[in-house]
């Protein structure tokens, strides 16, 4: 795993140097867009419709569209300045119970690993959080955006989950067709509750598989095997045995009579192979 970020957790007077790793990865299959007649992968060009030219990186700047078609231009420096001094800090503010946070707030999850001398304070924070059953609410700046985040114990490590700000979580007020002024029928409620209890079990995520991805892989696999491809690659025919035997034969040939038969086990072993040497041509 490659660290995405390096910084430290600030917890009271203690500073814990840590490295941040992505906790999850997407396994979705990616398709590329091809030009149908020739199967060439399409490429994207940044083109200016006014100057009728492809635009190189050094001529690209950033603008904010404050009104349709009207832009204020911000330099990279101005954008950076707004981010403030980028202190690489996970600053713990409060300790709370995990149950107090609704999952709708969670954005991305990361693992934290101690960096350099951070091992001891890292373990201390982990143990203290585990024993109190609390989690830490913190602020963190990853890249440029400052986020609210949760630091908690996950298995034997500390994890960090970034969170949406309250104003990024949409209100439920505006949802259409919410049942208002209706009542639940007692009998139906009893039945529904019973059904829930019947289906209650413990969390076993392994039961769930990405069947869409597996089906797609099966289709792709079948096409590859059925040679349903214009030019089938022939790597299967290339064998390293051929190369090994060709090398062996070549060394042997150039040795001529200058040397006695090798006493090395490996030499003998290879030259006494039963398989017929198919010397690679060319």
């Amino acid at each position: 795993m490659r660290a995405m970020w390096k910084g430290s957790i600030s917890f009271g007077l203690v500073n814990i140097p840590v490295r941040l790793f992505a906790a999850t990865e997407k396994k979705d299959l990616k398709f590329r867009y091809l030009h149908a007649p020739c199967h060439t992968p399409l490429e994207y060009q940044k083109v200016c419709s006014t100057c009728k030219t492809e635009v190189p990186w050094e001529e690209i700047i950033r603008g904010y569209e404050y009104e349709r078609g009207r832009f204020v231009v911000l330099s990279e420096e101005e954008i950076d300045a707004a981010a403030g001094e980028k202190e690489r800090l996970i600053e713990i503010q409060d300790f709370i119970q995990l149950e107090e946070i609704d999952p709708v707030y969670f954005q991305n999850s990361y693992y934290l690993a101690p960096d350099g001398p951070g091992g001891r304070p890292y373990l201390l924070l982990w143990e203290a959080m585990r024993e109190t059953g609390k989690i830490a609410l913190a602020t963190v700046t990853l890249r440029t955006k400052e986020s609210m985040a949760v630091v908690r114990t996950y298995k034997e490590v500390l994890s960090l989950s970034t969170m949406f700000y309250p104003d990024e979580v949409r209100s439920v007020q505006d949802l259409p067709d919410l049942p208002k002024g209706l009542e639940v029928r007692e009998k139906e409620l009893v039945m529904a509750k019973e059904l829930i209890l019947n289906l209650s079990t413990s969390f076993e995520p392994e039961k769930y598989k990405d069947s869409y991805r597996n089906k797609l892989l099966d289709v792709i696999q079948a096409k590859v095997e059925g040679k349903e491809i214009a030019v089938a690659p022939s790597p299967e025919r290339e064998k390293v045995v051929d190369l090994l035997e060709a090398l062996q034969a070549s060394v042997k040939k150039s040795r001529e009579k200058t040397e006695k038969a090798g006493k090395r086990d490996s030499n003998r072993k290879l030259s006494s192979r039963k398989e017929k040497a198919t010397v690679a041509k060319k």
Binding site: L243, L244, A246, L247, Q248, S250, V251, S254, R255, E259, G262, R264, S266, N267, K269, L270
Partner: peptide, 16 residues
Amino acid sequence: PSYENGDLLLQTVRAY
């Protein structure tokens, strides 16, 4: 495979 004569192997490897 291992060989005792490095020079011969080097020649071969170069040829290949």
